[in-house]
Design a protein around this nucleic acid. Structure first.
Lengths: 148, 148
DNA sequence: TATTGTTATACTCTATAACTATA
DNA sequence: TATAGTTATAGAGTATAACAATA
């Protein structure tokens, strides 16, 4: 056990670093896919949640996307200006505003989603199908941990 | 095959979204771990590469971290001001500047690395050891693809 | 008193173009 | 002419605090 035995731990073995780099690759591809649709990753995410059936409030959306509620305001503002989503006051809690996609919003989201998944399929094509599902499963467990 | 057969594809099944969310969790934990050491994720990454044996130039570092070369300038400036790294002109190409860690830089990197890996072990503790290695392997293949 | 959405502000990160020195 | 580093600048993303309406 000499003093040279210490672990060197290069960045390339660091899961956090790999996560960041893989995410950067993914973001780049996704932004390129969304650009023709006039969306960015964040506005696409908000639009997607607005098009879901759950009738999420801005607070819900903020938590789900790990954004500050004040950031969601600006994103919803922009989508609303483009008539892709609407704000509806929740009758059960009149403080909360449910964000719902309009028909135009749903249509755009559908087309954008197609483009996004095409880009991601390309990014993932070096993995075998089983590995893709495994990766998704592992990431989901990591991304939706309680403690974080 | 009715019109209702279309795939809904919620965000929660989107690998890109999960990658982004998991990365956000990781970044948060890593920043918290680095804060006592006076480093951010990006400066830590640059310092780590400067402490490696490869004698990387700023251009190499930019490519590895997927940063613009101009961003690396600012990061190295700051680390150099704190005497954690030094710029050395590459004798083989006098345009290039190799970034090397000082002794103080190496010491700081070692301590910071300890903190980072502790934080990440915590984040990954819900995965079994085999799954952690599998995740790292999959991410590495994704992060260091040629096409991107 | 606590929470939702909002506004305002400042800070970090990212992207781009132009310049210099070397090749 | 092409590349490494630098500078400057603008835009996107992030974090914080304070406030009004509602619970």
């Amino acid at each position: 056990m000499t003093s040279e035995t210490r672990t060197e731990r290069p960045l390339s073995l660091d899961t956090g670093f790999l996560l960041a780099r893989a995410n950067a690759c993914s973001l780049e591809a996704t932004h390129a896919a969304l650009e023709p649709h006039g969306l960015r990753v964040r506005s696409y995410s908000v639009l997607s949640l607005a098009a879901a059936e759950e009738r999420l409030s801005q607070r819900d959306i903020a938590e789900y996307l790990r954004l500050d509620p004040s950031q969601v305001v600006a994103l919803v503002d922009e989508l609303q200006k483009r008539q892709l989503v609407a704000r509806e006051t929740d009758p059960h809690d009149r403080r909360a505003k449910v964000v719902v996609a309009t028909d135009a919003g749903r249509q755009l989201r559908e087309a954008a989603s197609e483009a996004v998944h095409h880009a991601q399929a390309e990014m993932l094509e070096s993995l075998r199908p089983v590995e893709r599902e495994l990766l998704r499963d592992l990431l989901e467990r990591l991304a939706f941990q309680d403690h974080a």
